[in-house]
Computed example of a mutant assay.
Amino acid sequence: MTTVDNDLDPVAPSAIEGERLSAPSGHLPRGSRRRSRRAGGFTPYALLTPAIIVLAAITGWPIIQLVITSFQEFGRAQVFGAPPAFVGLENYIDVFTDPVFYGVLIRSVVFAAACVVITMLLATLIALMMTRLNKVFRMVLTVGMLLAWAMPALTATIVWGWMFDTAYGVVNYVLVNWFGLEEFHQHSWLIDPLSFFFVAGIIIVWGAIPFAAFTLYAGLTQVPEEVIEAAQLDGAGAFSRFRLIVFPYVKPIFMIVAMLQVIWDLRVFTQIFALQDIGGITSETNTLGTYIYQTSIAGGDFGQGGALAVITAVLLMSISIYYIRQVLKEEEL
């Protein structure tokens, strides 16, 4: 009788591997189960626990207090110690039955959509241009965008406000003296709501482009050059190469950046508030951020202001969840 040593049998290793692959998940070899436990276990949860605790302490508790306040009558008297009264859904009913809220909401959504579209379009063009520039010009452009991005929003708004000033602004001077447009002599850009949001949009887009452009440029550097060259040899034009090859590579990054821009532009506050203080009409130029401020802090109705803040937070969370689901679907394809 002859015995065959499995160590010498060339079929044995593949057979063993086949048994491992075909074995049910509940009957994995002992070594595989040990490696599986070692790869996961409680380590990820232990590492995340400190961050979750800090996040809950810094963000969670204020959010809970905000939700509680939204169900209370909380005015200036309560700020100085008077007990708040529970009013149930009254604050939310007041918000949803107020036509001013819907005007502010529509204005905020349209303004944010316009800013996001322009920001993403210009950022994509700048990112594509950065891939074509030589090292020196790319460095100059990078430094310039970093300076624009590093400038505080309030400082940038004040500078742009001076540029669009009625009497001494350089924009009116150029339009009148260089282009002969006399209708812009002593023109007030902030009185009219349409021109007000034009100025605000320039400031917001100008400050948002650097982040979007840098992020998209980082994604573009990961696109394989050989794939683009092969498409070029096949006769694909620049737009076709971007649409069919480049954009699918950077689409997840593009969607994440667009999601962040939507969230930032919907809750924009500093630029709108500063321009209103310079000369804009508050009632005609309020967005969600400034409307919450005018209702709660300036108006003293913290209960209704809390309801507005909760509604805005739910809106932003809904948009975020939608975009996250879209990104996850793209990764599964």
Rank of each mutant, 00 (worst) to 15 (best):
1 M>V: 14
1 M>Q: 11
3 T>R: 14
6 N>H: 15
7 D>M: 10
9 D>R: 12
11 V>T: 09
12 A>T: 06
13 P>T: 08
19 E>W: 13
24 P>M: 05
26 G>F: 13
29 P>G: 15
40 G>K: 10
43 T>S: 01
44 P>A: 10
49 T>P: 00
49 T>K: 04
51 A>V: 10
54 V>A: 07
55 L>T: 13
58 I>S: 03
60 G>E: 05
66 L>R: 03
67 V>K: 06
73 E>Q: 12
77 A>R: 15
78 Q>V: 02
80 F>H: 13
93 I>N: 00
94 D>M: 03
96 F>M: 05
96 F>Y: 03
98 D>P: 07
101 F>W: 15
104 V>G: 00
105 L>D: 06
109 V>K: 05
110 V>S: 10
119 T>A: 09
120 M>N: 02
121 L>P: 00
122 L>Y: 04
122 L>F: 13
124 T>C: 06
125 L>H: 03
125 L>G: 11
131 T>W: 04
134 N>L: 06
138 R>M: 05
138 R>T: 10
141 L>W: 07
145 M>S: 02
148 A>S: 12
151 M>E: 10
154 L>E: 07
154 L>S: 08
158 I>P: 01
159 V>E: 08
159 V>S: 02
164 F>W: 06
168 Y>C: 06
171 V>K: 09
172 N>R: 04
175 L>D: 07
176 V>Y: 05
182 E>N: 15
183 E>K: 13
183 E>N: 11
184 F>W: 11
186 Q>S: 14
191 I>F: 04
203 I>W: 02
204 I>G: 06
206 W>Y: 13
206 W>H: 05
208 A>I: 01
209 I>H: 02
212 A>R: 13
213 A>Q: 09
213 A>H: 09
214 F>V: 10
220 L>T: 03
222 Q>V: 08
223 V>A: 12
223 V>N: 12
225 E>N: 06
227 V>L: 15
238 A>K: 15
244 L>D: 05
257 V>C: 00
257 V>R: 03
258 A>V: 14
261 Q>R: 15
268 V>H: 12
271 Q>F: 05
279 G>N: 07
281 I>N: 08
282 T>F: 05
282 T>L: 11
283 S>R: 14
296 S>I: 08
298 A>K: 15
298 A>C: 01
299 G>W: 03
300 G>D: 09
303 G>S: 14
304 Q>Y: 04
304 Q>F: 02
306 G>Q: 07
311 I>N: 06
318 S>C: 03
318 S>L: 04
322 Y>W: 14
324 I>W: 08
326 Q>C: 09
327 V>W: 07
328 L>V: 13
329 K>D: 15
